[in-house]
């Protein structure tokens, strides 16, 4: 009695058995978010301020009738905020199988790249102390500078 088996949640595996990661910039540092957490990427929108909450939560926005809280990743990392421009965007993350959505304001997004498991190293010890808390892995591709893979669960919920 086999019904269609829905794909189980978990990192989306590609054929090369790597992890798909979206890269974005904060100043010169490149951070990554696993694509399994990402629902969509939208342009920056006017946020409605919610009083009496930590200031890294910029407020809420209306995404097609859903009220979604938005955080500033710069504030979260303790980096000075910059004015929004036309490349500023919101990466909408989802948790709990889509029940919970949270937007993350970033300066600009770059691209989605499949990263081989072998390139992901475990021990992150890196510059920005504040951001360090939210880093899960470092990805070294041998040639240029290392990229930092963020731990979305920690970034949002801790």
């Amino acid at each position: 009695m086999a019904v269609d088996k829905m794909p189980q949640s978990g990192a989306k595996k590609t054929m090369s058995d790597g992890v798909e990661i979206l890269w974005f910039n904060i100043d010169d540092v490149i951070y990554g978010i696993e694509i399994e957490y990402i629902n969509e990427i939208i342009g920056i929108d006017k946020t409605t301020v919610i009083p009496n909450i930590p200031d890294y939560i910029k407020g809420v926005i209306n995404i097609r009738g859903k009220v979604v809280p938005v955080i500033s990743i710069r504030k979260r990392f303790g980096v000075e905020e910059v004015p929004y421009d036309d490349r500023t965007c919101i990466i909408v993350l989802e948790f709990d199988g889509g029940l919970q959505q949270v937007g993350v304001i970033v300066d600009r997004v770059q691209e989605v790249v499949v990263v081989d498991h072998d390139l992901i190293t475990q021990t992150p010890q890196y510059q920005n102390v504040n951001a360090n808390r939210y880093i899960k892995n470092i990805i070294e591709n041998g040639t240029d500078e290392a990229k930092l893979l963020l731990d979305c669960e920690k970034l949002i919920w801790e």
């Binding site: 909450i53 939560i57 809420v60 009220v67 979604v68 809280p69 709990d96 919970q100 919920w157």
Partner: peptide
């Protein structure tokens, strides 16, 4: 409210 905001006791 989204869970995140409830966590901060809105």
């Amino acid at each position: 409210w989204a869970q995140l905001l409830n966590n901060f006791g809105v």
